[in-house]
């Protein structure tokens, strides 16, 4: 379980999160919505200890991670699978090497076993033929699919964290990513997806949080959100009328 207890965070003089408190269970499917710069990605980075809060506590399974060292955080991080915006594939490595990266770091698998595992993962997302490609040869949607498979190659995470997983993709590619996220979730493990695309959020999540200026101004289900009178949420919901 993830628990934020009065967490504040700033980049220099710019306050990003202000006294934020919430909790998420590991089997929940949560979408965090909000505008650019409102602190959505910061929340994900705080959960896995890539950033440290200025004040407050972040508890993962009851353990406060705010004072943990980089080595101690390794045990926390393997509970999660994080997929960054645009996939964050390593430019200098091929698709195969990217997916094999965590296997080489975390397991003692032989080269044949790694090859078999990589092919199996890529087959699952229809990208086995792209095994020898370099990241620059992939489309945006392929990038994300490879990144998702890489994130779950070496360990079985309890929860997935997706940063803008469908942003910048055409509707067909975005739909493929959404189906993949749901497919993975159905096999166990909840997720938190950070997005500003309400349409995709409604396809994926069951709980919605809306962030504005570092504060959660809404936390509820789809029905409650659709009837919300908060002006910012209504602006976001207009996307649904267009689609």
């Amino acid at each position: 379980m993830i628990e934020f207890d009065r967490v504040s965070f700033s980049y220099g003089n710019r306050f990003v999160l202000n006294d934020l408190s919430f909790s998420v269970h590991e089997d929940e499917r949560v979408a965090i919505l909000g505008g650019s710069g409102d602190g959505k990605t910061t929340i994900l980075k705080l959960i896995i200890g890539l950033l440290r809060p200025d004040s407050g506590k972040i508890l993962i399974d009851g353990e406060d991670i705010t004072e943990k060292t980089e080595d101690e955080l390794r045990d926390i991080r393997i509970k999660f699978s994080m997929v960054f915006q645009d996939g964050a594939l390593f430019d200098s490595l091929s698709v195969k090497e990217n997916v094999a990266f965590p296997l080489r770091e975390y397991t003692k698998m032989s080269e044949e076993e790694i090859d078999r595992k990589v092919r199996e993962l890529l087959r699952r997302v229809g990208l086995e033929e792209a095994i020898g490609y370099m990241p620059e040869e992939l489309s945006g949607g392929m990038h994300r699919r490879v990144a998702i498979m890489r994130s779950m190659a070496a360990f079985q995470p309890k929860m997935f964290l997706y940063d803008e997983a469908t942003t910048g993709l055409d509707p067909v590619s975005a739909d493929v990513i959404c189906k993949l996220i749901l497919d993975i979730s159905e096999q166990g493990g909840g997720f938190i997806i950070v997005t500003h695309k309400v349409f995709d959020a409604f396809k994926l999540a069951e709980r919605f949080m809306f962030l504005k200026s570092g504060t959660i101004i809404f936390d509820g289900d789809k029905k409650k959100m659709l009837h919300s009178t908060i002006p910012e949420i209504q602006i976001f919901l207009r996307e649904l009328n267009w689609s």
Binding site: K45, L50, R77, I78, M82, F84, A88, E105
Partner: peptide, 8 residues
């Protein structure tokens, strides 16, 4: 950041 997430 991805390297750090992978514990590298």
């Amino acid at each position: 950041d991805t390297l750090r997430v992978f514990g590298v």
